[in-house]
Amino acid sequence: MIPLNWYMWLSGVVFCIGMFGFVTRRNIIIMLLSIEIMFNGVNISLIALSHYLEDLAGQVLVFFIIAVAAAEAAIGLALVMLLFRNKETITVDDLNELKG
């Protein structure tokens, strides 16, 4: 059988790839995609733990995470639409009016 650690490592790698994308890309849509990648990294570990611990709480949690991810994508993309309508750009670095 496959050790539990392999799944956990895979989940860690996927999570960190998503984090790298979120930190370094400046395109909002790609940043939202990176968040989805991070969600999926966490989901892999939850499902693996749920299988190895023989407890279905992990799967139920993944179910909730998927629901929240859908809500997050809907709101996020609505914000992107609004941003594009007002500023004609979806690059984060162009939104520098506050000069903070």
């Binding site: 496959i2 499902i47 299988h51 998927i66 859908a70």
Partner: peptide, 15 residues
């Protein structure tokens, strides 16, 4: 592979 067939279907339908 992790015996989570329902979640895997939900993954494809929702994601």
């Amino acid at each position: 592979f992790l015996n989570a067939e329902f979640i895997s279907a939900v993954q494809i339908i929702v994601y």
